[in-house]
Simulated scan of single mutants.
Amino acid sequence: MSVKETVGDFITIEREGRVAVVRFDRGDRINALSVQLLRDLAQTARLLREDIETSAVVLTGGQVFTGGADLTDPAIRQRAAASLLERREMLRAGPDMCDAWEALDQVTIVAIEGFCIGGGVALSVSCDFRVTGKSAYFRLPEIPLGMNMSWHTQPRMVNLIGPSRTKQFTIFGEKVDAGTAEKWGLADEICEDGAALATARRWADKVAALPPVSVRMAKRGITQAATALNAVSTFMDADQFALASTSEDHREAVNAFLEKRKPDFTGR
């Protein structure tokens, strides 16, 4: 028998046995991450952290995983007029959300359909495993838009795919298809389109059949070994984002995107 609860307007948690399935779904084909949705996802992770009955958590989106940050969100637009101190506080939502998911002792499996862009990548690499439909792709658009990759993401990707591929993925901002993602180690299994959730659930069921205390200890030990220096290398990435987003190059990148032309970057 499953038990379902909601967090905020767009998140459901469905528990069955030792598995919880978390779905965030705004009901459209972008499934963008608003600031409130980021906070609700963080709250969801904190609720699950206190759940000693659950061994595995599957995280999935709606029609697609997510197109990343919701640039139409009024809370994001308000940052432009905020003081630096206010802006630093506003920028906490993304990294706090990713940190909350990484802090879970349950094994976390992300089911990805369609696309996983920007903040979606940041969220997915905060988790343990990623299962993707064969047509799904990953992309980081931040650098071509004159920003930096924040949310404590870069060392997590280095942990997964190494420094050279992390540089390719981050700097060029190009799509990484499911096959390449699996070759790199960013995706753990590719399945038929539409089957990512069912496939991720099979992974979760395997975890749920194992001794829960041993699983939690193993996961935490491996995560701590892999991420011991991550906080040291990313403690200023929100400040870097605040700086980069005030540059002329960032404004030029956004204008060029909207005007469908090639940008002219100057380093200012």
Rank of each mutant, 00 (worst) to 15 (best):
residue 157 M to V: 15
residue 64 V to Q: 07
residue 147 M to P: 00
residue 204 A to Y: 01
residue 6 T to Y: 08
residue 92 R to M: 11
residue 129 F to R: 13
residue 227 T to W: 08
residue 223 T to C: 10
residue 207 V to F: 13
residue 58 V to Y: 03
residue 55 S to M: 05
residue 155 P to S: 14
residue 209 A to M: 06
residue 216 R to G: 12
residue 85 L to G: 04
residue 212 P to S: 07
residue 33 L to D: 00
residue 260 K to P: 00
residue 176 V to D: 02
residue 44 T to I: 04
residue 63 Q to V: 12
residue 221 G to T: 12
residue 193 D to P: 01
residue 55 S to A: 15
residue 237 D to I: 02
residue 102 E to I: 00
residue 38 L to D: 03
residue 136 A to Y: 02
residue 240 Q to K: 10
residue 240 Q to T: 04
residue 18 R to G: 10
residue 48 L to I: 09
residue 36 Q to K: 09
residue 231 A to R: 12
residue 13 I to Q: 03
residue 217 M to I: 09
residue 41 L to H: 04
residue 184 W to H: 05
residue 235 F to Y: 15
residue 25 D to E: 06
residue 40 D to V: 08
residue 35 V to E: 07
residue 85 L to M: 08
residue 229 L to G: 10
residue 247 S to I: 12
residue 148 N to L: 07
residue 264 D to Y: 09
residue 63 Q to M: 14
residue 171 I to F: 02
residue 66 T to I: 03
residue 243 L to N: 08
residue 252 E to G: 09
residue 56 A to P: 01
residue 123 L to W: 00
residue 215 V to N: 02
residue 161 I to P: 07
residue 131 V to L: 01
residue 65 F to Y: 01
residue 201 R to Y: 11
residue 85 L to F: 10
residue 220 R to P: 04
residue 222 I to E: 03
residue 247 S to P: 05
residue 250 H to W: 06
residue 104 L to I: 10
residue 207 V to P: 10
residue 241 F to K: 05
residue 156 R to S: 04
residue 253 A to P: 06
residue 45 A to K: 04
residue 225 A to L: 14
residue 194 G to K: 03
residue 141 P to S: 11
residue 201 R to L: 12
residue 114 G to A: 04
residue 85 L to Q: 15
residue 257 F to E: 04
residue 168 Q to D: 10
residue 239 D to W: 07
residue 216 R to N: 10
residue 77 R to A: 15
residue 67 G to H: 09
residue 88 R to P: 00
residue 189 E to S: 07
residue 73 D to T: 05
residue 213 V to W: 08
residue 214 S to R: 09
residue 241 F to Y: 15
residue 255 N to M: 14
residue 6 T to K: 13
residue 258 L to V: 12
residue 64 V to N: 07
residue 147 M to C: 03
residue 21 V to L: 06
residue 212 P to L: 03
residue 116 C to R: 01
residue 253 A to K: 08
residue 64 V to P: 07
residue 251 R to L: 11
residue 190 I to L: 09
residue 169 F to R: 01
residue 153 T to E: 13
residue 105 D to W: 05
residue 98 C to G: 05
residue 77 R to F: 08
residue 167 K to V: 12
residue 254 V to T: 08
residue 161 I to Y: 08
residue 45 A to F: 03
residue 80 A to F: 10
residue 66 T to L: 01
residue 166 T to C: 13
residue 20 A to C: 06
residue 97 M to V: 03
residue 247 S to R: 12
residue 188 D to T: 00
residue 122 A to F: 04
residue 204 A to K: 05
residue 215 V to E: 02
residue 240 Q to W: 11
residue 244 A to P: 09
residue 256 A to H: 06
residue 190 I to N: 05
residue 250 H to F: 14
residue 154 Q to I: 15
residue 19 V to G: 06
residue 87 R to L: 14
residue 239 D to H: 06
residue 114 G to H: 06
